[in-house]
Amino acid sequence: MKSIEELKAIKARMQAEINTRDASTDADTRIVVGMATCGIAAGARPVLNAFLEEVRNKRLSGVRVTQTGCLGMCKLEPMVEVFVPGKEKVTYVKVTADAARKIVADHIVNGSVVNEYVITNV
């Protein structure tokens, strides 16, 4: 393996942070990316990666990036659902990696929905 030391350093950082927050709960914000054949073929993997990198870079706690299967509208893939506790679900369509970064900055961090990618506006 490339670098066990590197992994051990990550582990030490995680241990230091774990005391500052509890394990994931229902109060988490969830970002759900559709990863069926249709999503993957339309570019869902770089979108998933972009969400993960942004959540990591911005060190957001209480945000989980997860995956699901086909959301039922293959021609609108990549599709992403965002669940913020206490708010209505927002469904984004034709999401790109750049759009994913914008969704994290505007919607997840600042609470303002990125209208240009919302399903009802496309």
């Binding site: 393996m1 490339k2 670098s3 992994l7 990550i10 774990i18 993960l52 990198e53 990591r56 990036v65």
Partner: peptide, 19 residues
Amino acid sequence: ILDGLPIDAPEVISFIKST
């Protein structure tokens, strides 16, 4: 190595991808 810490933490996933 993680010894109970979550493997799906963003930092660990990034590590797996690059490794």
